[in-house]
C-alpha cells in the first residue's frame, strides 16, 4: 500500500480535510476569519475542552466512557480557588498540583468501583459525577468566586501570552499541546499506554498475556480524573471566574470531539492527533454558529447531530474492518 492510500484510510485525514474545508468556507464568507487574532482566539478556545478530551480519550481507548469529568473539574477548580483565597496563596504551581490531585483521587475512586465490582463505567461515572457535584454544592458552597475575589496569580497566569506578529497567542495553547504530546507518548510509546489499548480490545486477553489489568484501569481513570482537575483550574484562570456549577453539559461537547477524532466507543481505537483535530473541528463549528448568530439552543441540536453522525461513521468503519 502506498503512503497516500494509507493516509487516506486514516480517520485523522478525513477530519483534517473537513476542518480545512470548513475554514475555507468560513474564510470566504468572512475574510476576517483568517486574521491572526481570530485564529489565536480559536486556538485558545480549544484548550480546556481539549485537555478534557484527552482525558476522555484515555478512558474511551480502554473501552470505557467517562461522564464524570465535568463534575471533577468543577470540584477541583472550586476547592482549589477557595483554598488559595483562604490561605492567601500567591503562586500557581502548587494550586495546579492540588487541582490535579483532587481530580486524580476522584478518578481513582471511579477505577476502584469499575475494577473491583466489574461495574459499567457509564453507571459508575454518572453516579460519581452526581455525588461529587452534590457534595460540592451542599457542603462547600454555591457562590461564584468573581473576578474581584479571584487570586491575582491565577488571573495573571491565565493571561500570559506570546506576541506573534502583533497578535496575542495564549500560553495556555502551549500548555495544552504539551499535555497532548505527553498523553500521545504515554499511549503509543509506553507499555502502560499499550496496555490501555489492549484492555480496550479484550480485557481477558490482556490479562492472559500478563498485563496487570487492575493497574491499567486505575491508570486510565486516574489519569482521566487528573487531567479533568487540571483543566478545571486552568478554565478558572482563563475566564477569571470560579463557578461551582460550571462545566454542565461539557460531557456532550467533549465526547463529541473525541468521537469526531476517530476514537471508537467500543475501545481500542483512538489517537491524540485525531482528538486534537476533533476538538478543533468542534470548536470551529461552535464558533461559526456563534458568528452566524445561531441561537444557543440550536447549537445543541447541531452538536447532537454531529455526535450521532460521527458515531455512525465510526461504527460503520469498525463493522467494515470486522467483516
Amino acid at each position: 500500500m502506498n503512503l497516500f492510500a494509507k493516509l487516506m484510510r486514516r480517520s485523522e485525514t478525513a477530519v483534517f480535510l473537513i476542518v480545512v474545508a470548513i475554514m475555507i468556507v468560513i474564510g470566504a464568507i468572512n475574510p476576517a476569519f483568517w486574521q491572526a487574532d481570530n485564529l489565536f482566539n480559536l486556538l485558545r478556545a480549544n484548550v480546556v475542552i481539549g485537555i478534557m478530551a484527552l482525558s476522555v480519550l484515555i478512558v474511551m481507548v480502554s473501552g470505557g466512557i467517562d461522564v464524570s469529568f465535568p463534575a471533577f473539574a468543577a470540584a477541583a477548580m472550586y476547592l482549589t480557588v477557595l483554598a488559595m483565597n483562604a490561605y492567601g496563596y500567591e503562586g500557581v504551581v502548587l494550586p495546579f498540583i492540588g487541582a490535579t490531585l483532587i481530580g486524580l483521587i476522584c478518578g481513582l475512586a471511579n477505577a476502584f468501583f469499575i475494577h473491583t465490582f466489574r461495574m459499567i463505567p457509564l453507571i459508575v461515572t454518572l453516579g460519581s459525577a452526581s455525588v461529587v457535584r452534590g457534595l460540592l454544592l451542599g457542603l462547600v458552597g454555591t457562590s461564584i468566586v468573581n473576578i474581584d475575589r479571584m487570586p491575582p496569580a491565577l488571573i495573571a497566569f491565565g493571561r500570559s501570552s506570546l506576541d506573534v506578529g502583533g497578535a496575542k497567542l495564549s500560553v495556555m495553547v502551549f500548555v495544552y499541546l504539551g499535555l497532548a504530546v505527553l498523553v500521545g507518548l504515554l499511549l503509543t510509546r509506553t507499555m502502560t499506554g499499550r496496555s490501555i489499548f489492549a484492555y480496550g480490545d479484550d480485557a481477558e486477553s490482556a490479562k492472559r498475556v500478563g498485563f496487570n489489568t487492575r493497574r491499567t484501569v486505575y491508570v486510565a481513570y486516574g489519569l482521566a480524573g487528573a487531567l479533568a482537575g487540571f483543566a478545571g483550574l486552568l478554565h478558572a484562570s482563563m475566564i477569571w471566574l470560579a463557578n461551582p456549577r460550571d462545566f454542565v453539559g461539557y460531557e456532550l461537547d467533549v465526547i463529541a470531539a473525541v468521537v469526531l477524532g476517530g476514537a471508537s466507543i467500543f475501545g481500542g481505537r483512538g489517537s491524540v492527533l485525531g482528538t486534537l483535530l476533533g476538538v478543533f473541528l468542534l470548536v470551529l463549528i461552535k464558533n461559526s454558529l456563534i458568528i452566524m448568530r445561531i441561537d444557543n439552543t440550536w447549537q445543541g441540536v447541531v452538536i447532537g447531530c454531529v455526535i450521532v453522525i460521527a458515531t455512525a461513521l465510526t461504527a460503520w468503519r469498525d463493522r467494515k474492518t470486522l467483516a
Binding site: F197, A198, D201, D202, R208, V209, G268
Partner: peptide, 8 residues
Amino acid sequence: DFSLFPSL
C-alpha cells in the same frame, strides 16, 4: 480466540 489485540 487467540488472545490477540486487534488494535495493536
